[in-house]
């Protein structure tokens, strides 16, 4: 245990297990993510990282175990309920709203914070107009951060791959989360783009006081920005520590390079 005063846990996972038929994709997993942390989740292909994300965001419900987000148990809740509590995510295989513009993608994600009723929209009340303006302004601000404001009117799928990934992050931020889950944010980016993304993620964490949990295969990114890293193999946690500790851990080396 570190000697510094421990910050509060934002996400606490205990004995989390997910079985698909006879296959245990996640086994007895425990995690403790502190507020403001940049927490990395790594592991070989098929280790169960994305399954963990799907469990945390309610896409799957756990077979056993607990997930507590800021004191509320979220195991078994629906994805939209978890998002409402302040958990947002991006997807490994980009899932933008294809036939909508860049701006609309981000504005859509702000829907969850809307306080108007359907009737406001139907008869166009002042509340509707005010909210619509605010949503648009907020979305444009987010797009500016990601340098996407100049393409706000383009279709989301017309963007280059790297920008689509960044747009996914912008869209996730529009839900006003306190915990952001990034599933391979640097996938498909060239080294320079990856470095820019690292800086951006760090900056976002401080600017929006976020806690960030990320799955990533690009070791340069993971080792460069994560403060704590947990290594998963075959659905089990095999190591947990700082980047330096992880790099030296024999179990990790074995998982990645194979045992003798």
């Amino acid at each position: 245990m570190s000697s510094a005063p421990a910050p509060v846990s934002v996400l606490k996972v205990d004995a989390l297990t997910k079985r698909f038929g006879g296959l245990s994709a996640v086994k007895e997993l425990s995690m403790d993510v502190k507020a403001g942390a940049l927490y990395g989740l790594i592991g070989p292909n098929g280790a169960g990282k994305t399954t963990i994300f799907n469990l945390l965001t309610g896409v799957y419900s756990p077979t056993e175990g607990t997930i507590v987000f800021k004191g509320t148990s979220v195991a078994g809740l629906k994805p939209y309920e978890i998002t409402k509590l302040g958990v947002a995510r991006t997807f490994q295989n980009i899932r933008l709203f294809a036939d909508m513009t860049v701006l609309e993608n981000v504005m859509t994600a702000h829907h969850i914070r809307s306080r108007q009723f359907l009737i406001d929209a139907v008869i166009g009340t002042g509340r509707h107009q005010r909210e619509e303006r605010e949503t648009r302004d907020k979305a444009m601000e987010l797009l500016k951060i990601f340098d996407l404001d100049s393409v706000a009117g383009e279709l989301a799928t017309s963007l280059p791959y790297g920008n689509q990934r960044r747009l996914e992050i912008a869209r996730a931020l529009a839900t006003e989360p306190s915990l952001l889950l990034l599933d391979e944010p640097a996938a498909g980016m060239n080294p320079q783009e990856a470095v820019d993304l690292m800086n951006l993620i760090k900056w976002l964490r401080d600017e929006f006081s976020l806690t960030i949990l990320l799955v990533e295969h690009n070791m340069k990114v993971v080792m460069g920005i994560c403060e704590r890293i947990q290594v998963i193999d075959y659905g089990k946690s095999i190591a947990l520590g700082t980047p330096d500790e992880i790099q030296k851990d024999p179990a990790v080396i074995e998982a990645y390079l194979g045992g003798a």
Partner: peptide, 21 residues
């Protein structure tokens, strides 16, 4: 309106729409 965008989002990708709340 925001409701229309929510409906379009459902049309485009239900999983992503749920994840956006």
């Amino acid at each position: 309106s925001t409701f229309g965008r929510a409906l379009s989002a459902i049309r485009e990708d239900e999983i992503a729409a749920e994840a956006m709340g």
